[in-house]
Amino acid sequence: MAEQTILKATNICHSFGGLMALKDVDFKISSKEIVGLIGPNGAGKTTLFNLFTGHYCPTRGEIYFNNRKINGLKPYQITPQGIARTFQNIRIFSQMSVLDNVLIGQHCRTKTGLWGAIIRTSGSKREEARAYETALKMLHFVNLEEKKDEHASNLSYGEQRRLEIARALATDPTLLLLDEPAAGMNPQETSTLIKLIRQIRDEMNKTILLIEHDMKVVMSISERVAVLNYGRKIAEGTPQEVQNNDEVIKAYLGESA
């Protein structure tokens, strides 16, 4: 592929006490790809996400994002560099309005401090107006514009998932990590989501890595799929290749299949 690599992880190992969650995983994502990450429960998919976003620091191995080493950095240091994520169990700010949720995504792209907030300098006013505009654009993009003044906790499950995506997009990432975005969605919501993920790549030029258990989603939008099992990467390739891979079938269906 001619596209340039934006995320490169080499020899990633991560252990929780005596448990090796990830063993020598190599991983690469090129610009504007949609990559699916699958594997049985407990395979280490979310752990890998947490390593990419700085929630964990790898026991061994290196992670480079845009040729800069990011392992060992904290989440709030990695986000400004251009990685954003959603969470497996939705983590929206439920007591805040939908709009405020998305405005928080703009935090790392703005810089008004205590003084600017109290005095309301013209710079901070301009910045606030710009953040507001961006937030509205993101809400429009995920089709939640009319709900901007609602309490986030009043949104339906599918809407909360979309809000989380809008909030992540508001951090202006180059790489978007989606952790089971279709979990708990009905077929109709799922097909809207598939369209939305394609739009994020095609219209906003983002690179997307997603964990998903819904095979229909993974196989229909991923250009490349990586499979983890017991902390090892057991296969990687196009959806077609992965579906016909013996090791993958074994991992999902067992030895005698």
């Binding site: 709030y76 929206i92 805040m96 951090t171």
Partner: peptide, 18 residues
Amino acid sequence: RALLAIREDETAAESMGI
């Protein structure tokens, strides 16, 4: 907003760059 975000969910707040 950053303070409220910390109250609501510190992990999510950190991943928003706070």
